[in-house]
């Protein structure tokens, strides 16, 4: 049964990661893109836990916990900067549409 659970977990990670990437590639709204980044990060973090679980079933190593917590903190920093940039971008462009934000090109 444990193996089954493992594949479910992995499946979740893959689905989450794909959702994040799809969102980044298709959504125009910057806030949605920030959320997509968070989803990607969540997927990666989840994978840590899953992998730890994979090594010894039914038990998650503290190292994985520590890493996930630190990486969540880092993710929060990135999100904070991303949101502040989104705000600034909104101030300059009066929109959150990425396609309008292409004055830098070529």
């Amino acid at each position: 049964m444990a193996i089954d659970l493992f594949s479910w977990y992995i499946g979740t990670v893959v689905v989450l990661y794909s959702i994040g990437l799809y969102c980044l590639a298709s959504k125009r709204n910057l806030v949605k893109m920030v959320i997509a980044i968070e989803i990607l990060l969540a997927a990666a973090n989840l994978n840590f836990i899953v992998m730890s679980y994979f090594m010894r079933t039914g038990y998650v190593h503290t190292l994985a916990h520590a890493i996930v917590i630190i990486s969540m903190a880092i993710g929060a920093c990135v999100a904070a900067i991303a949101l502040s940039l989104v705000m600034n971008a909104y101030r300059h462009y009066k929109t959150l549409d990425t396609r309008k934000m292409s004055r830098l090109r070529w």
């Binding site: 590639a25 959504k27 893109m33 934000m101 090109r105 070529w106």
Partner: peptide, 17 residues
């Protein structure tokens, strides 16, 4: 060729993918 560099974030992400 430089038109490839559209400057649109979504397109950049797609190229990256």
């Amino acid at each position: 060729f430089r038109k490839l560099q559209t400057g649109i974030l979504n397109v950049n992400v797609i190229l990256m993918l």
